[in-house]
Design a binder for these strands. Structure first.
Length: 774
DNA sequence: CAGTGAGCGAGCTTCCGCTTGACTT
């Protein structure tokens, strides 16, 4: 029996701490929240002062039972969940769930996982801060009320299984609005003039590229300028040199790690978090879900030592960074290597690369500034007031740049700063070539997963633990897709002056090419415009910030939590009721045109199963025909011809083995049907052009797959089948599936064995896409 | 992931935030 039970949130943390505390302490993990609002109905008793109905989360029952047992055996229980709103609530829930005796319970907090920090925490226990818990309850209940009242409204007004919430709906709004901006963006072109000057300092020739300090709005002006240059003299008017410095970026938080791993390594947000979790669990980095840029004293000392050893004293500059992020709770350190003297690690390629990034960023954050010298050379033109400017930048001391440089989202590839040759004021220069290039303004950039996280963080929306799940939710709901898009070819003019001749060339460039960007879908746009029309207050970019202020007041004891919820809920609920009554069901229906053969109207809209086309009016005598849009098509951009093509299905290809082969498209995409067997088409197949040979190929493939699927059939009872599934063998019986006990070898099972299993075990739950029929 | 293969129907879906496993057909 152990005297002390310490409960922390994460098992990896528990392991580390146990080492510090010695024999009298047993350290266990509760794996985050152990209680939550009941999922049935609202989980909140509105009439009764918004009393939350908490239950032990089903997946935590085992953990709770285990902890309860250990708590019963311990003299003192130390609740060491994180020091933030959620952590305080976890401690409070543990008291309830484990039925803890207050006299035996202590609440402790620490910010670093070091022996002194933990010893100090043990020496300074406190009570659970009920105000902080109330702030969490307000947060939780508000999110539940918003989510569970808005979502059903969408089911009624748009289509089933949609969702809305304080965080996800704003994320979708950002993407939908950005797309709208891009759609409305009209590029404007100007002419940028650059000159290459020849410099001859006696022993070597070099070139200086300078840009004119003015852009011309049209081609005629640009040509007129080049005409002037023909007879102009160029001379150095001014040389300005000034020192500059660059400072390193702060150590990683969850959000900045996701951004840099996306820019530098091309990782998706989810991938970054998966790999970071692996590094954390193997003790290589500190906790990966954090909003803090703080480094522990121990880490600072390790960094100083490592930098001195590797780069020398001059490269050391100890820095403490402060968090500017809205709503940061700073319960953890920044993300850093556990041991800064471990330059590399064992692991797979992703782990190595992410670790390397974290190591460099952490070390760089503790290194000296880079010292630069910036030079601007102004070159005058004898017959006009415009000037050419040449810019140079020389690194005098590299400092942190030796290790790491943060990337930007919008890399401007135009900057060509480097060393400039030695020049003297008054010196005349020869222009080798002057060119005016037509440049177009850029539309605002589409979001990547990581830049969306950055934006959400700036708005104070979402938390480190939810950025990745939020991104995946809005994609799972099909509000947003992440994909590549081809660019378009655009013409531009390039006018060159060389010697005394001006040549006007027409060139082409590729523009608008996108890689792994987020685009709104038809459904995303429809849901967003519906919510913007009726719930602009919830979609307001400041909504979270406003309620967070109130949560803070609750935490300070200045506001009662259910009063705050009361004041929010009633107007919000009235809004729901009103929208329910006044708004029509929306489908985004739009008349695309008429079918030239039948003359019937052709509509596009969002149906129960997503975007679709409809041929014929709904209330006409003949029933209208329907077809789903193909992947990648949008009701926004589909043409009449493309829409008409969709009605060319089903197509009968001919006969194979004396049965019809039909190709069509259904709920799960295009398929080939033969003898009532369905085979999905490959991504590269097009149902409109599919030929018989390929269809037969698909049918045979499917047969092969099916034969591998069946382990065994029983001629005496055709209902019972032994099949091979995703998770191994299982029994299929009358459309129900049954697990095979681990103790049994599936190949050895007899029909009787199977029937026994069927009788004795519950059928496994059907997957989420299984539907009832009839 | 596999399986599925509409078109009123019956009954389901849903939030955000804290943590990792799971033996799921």
């Amino acid at each position: 029996m152990t005297k002390n039970l310490v409960i922390v949130e994460s098992p990896a943390k528990a392991k580390t701490i146990e080492g510090f505390l010695g024999k009298d302490y047993l350290v266990k993990s509760c794996f985050g929240h152990v209680m939550d609002l009941a999922k049935k109905d609202l989980g909140v008793d509105i009439e009764n002062g918004f009393l939350p109905r908490y239950i032990i989360s089903p997946e935590k029952k085992k953990v709770v039972t285990e902890l309860k047992k250990k708590a019963g055996e311990a003299e003192i229980i130390w609740l060491a969940s994180d020091e933030d709103r959620e952590g305080e609530a976890i401690a409070w829930h543990l008291v309830t769930a484990l039925d803890l005796d207050e006299a035996k319970t202590r609440r402790i907090v620490f910010h670093e996982i070091t022996k002194p920090a933990i010893t100090e925490a043990i020496g300074n226990p406190r009570k659970i801060d009920k105000n902080l818990v109330d702030a969490q309850q307000a947060r939780r209940v508000l999110d539940r009320l918003v989510g569970f009242e808005l979502s059903p409204l969408l089911w009624k007004k748009i289509k089933p299984a949609l969702s809305a919430g304080r965080v996800q709906s704003v994320a979708v709004r950002l993407i939908a609005e950005r797309e709208e901006e891009i759609k409305n963006f009209v590029p404007v072109s100007t002419y940028r003039v650059q000159a290459d000057f020849l410099v001859d300092d006696g022993n070597k020739k070099s070139k200086v590229t300078a840009e004119l300090n003015k852009r011309f709005s049209d081609k005629a002006e640009a040509i007129a300028f080049l005409e002037k240059c023909k007879s102009a003299l160029f001379s150095v008017e001014d040389i300005e040199t000034k020192p500059a410095k660059k400072s390193p970026a702060p150590p990683f938080t969850t959000s900045t790690l996701q951004q840099e791993a996306s820019r530098k390594l091309g990782f998706s947000v989810a991938n970054t978090m998966r790999v970071a979790q692996q590094l954390y669990e193997s003790g290589k980095i500190t906790y990966m879900r954090t909003d803090s840029v703080n480094l522990s004293k121990m880490a600072l000392a390790m960094a100083r030592e490592e930098i001195t050893r590797t780069f020398g004293e001059d490269y050391v500059k100890t820095r403490q960074y402060t968090t500017k992020t809205k709503g940061a709770q700073e319960a953890h350190e920044a993300i850093r290597p556990t041991y800064l003297n471990h330059r590399t690690i064992e692991g797979d390629n992703s782990q190595k690369r992410l670790y390397d990034l974290i190591w460099k960023r952490t070390i760089a954050s503790q290194m000296s500034d880079a010292l630069l010298e910036k030079t601007n050379i102004t070159i005058g033109i004898s017959n006009t007031v415009e000037k050419f400017i040449a810019r140079g930048e020389v690194i005098k001391f590299d400092g942190f740049l030796k290790v790491y440089m943060e990337s930007k989202d919008d890399e401007d590839d135009e900057s060509q700063e480097g060393m400039l040759p030695q020049l003297k004021t008054g010196e005349t220069l020869i222009a080798e070539e002057i060119q005016a290039q037509q440049k177009f303004t850029q539309n605002p950039p589409r979001y990547t997963e990581a830049s969306l996280v950055k934006k959400l963080e700036e708005l104070g929306i979402g938390r480190p633990s939810t950025y990745a799940p939020t991104i995946s939710t809005i994609q799972k709901r099909e509000y947003v897709v992440r994909e590549d898009r081809d660019g378009t070819v655009r013409k531009y003019s390039l006018i060159k002056l060389k010697g005394q001749t001006i040549r006007d060339e027409e060139k082409t460039e590729n523009t608008g090419f996108e890689k792994s960007k987020l685009f709104p879908t038809d459904i995303g746009n429809l849901v967003n415009s519906f919510l913007m029309q009726y719930f602009v207050n919830i979609l307001d970019y400041n909504f979270t910030a406003l309620v967070e202020e109130e949560f803070d007041e609750i935490a300070e004891g200045k506001l009662v939590w259910n009063k705050m919820i009361h004041d929010f809920y009633y107007p919000f609920h009235a809004q729901i009721e009103e929208t329910l009554e006044t708004s029509k069901k929306v489908s985004g229906e739009k008349l695309l045109g008429k079918d030239p053969t039948s003359g019937e109207n052709l509509f596009v809209k969002i149906g129960r199963y997503g975007p679709m086309v409809q041929l014929g009016d709904t209330d006409s005598e003949n029933k209208p025909r329907f077809a789903s849009l193909k992947k990648g098509q949008s009701i926004d951009t589909i043409t009449l011809d493309e829409a008409l093509d969709l009605f060319k299905l089903p197509r009968t290809l001919g006969e194979y083995e004396s049965s019809e082969v039909v190709v069509s498209t259904g709920r799960f995409g295009p398929y080939v049907k033969h003898n009532s067997v369905f085979c999905s088409l490959a991504k590269t197949d097009d149902p409109l052009t599919l030929i018989m040979d390929r269809a037969i190929e698909l049918i045979l493939e499917k047969r092969k797959k099916d034969s591998e699927k069946t382990i065994r059939e029983f001629p005496e009872n055709k209902d019972v089948k032994l099949l091979n599934g995703r998770y191994g063998a299982y029994i299929s019986y009358k459309k129900q599936n049954y697990k095979i006990p681990k103790s049994k070898d599936p190949k050895e099972l007899t029909l009787d064995d199977c029937l026994t299993i069927i009788k004795e075990t519950e059928p496994s739950k059907p997957g989420r896409s299984a539907r009832k029929k009839k």
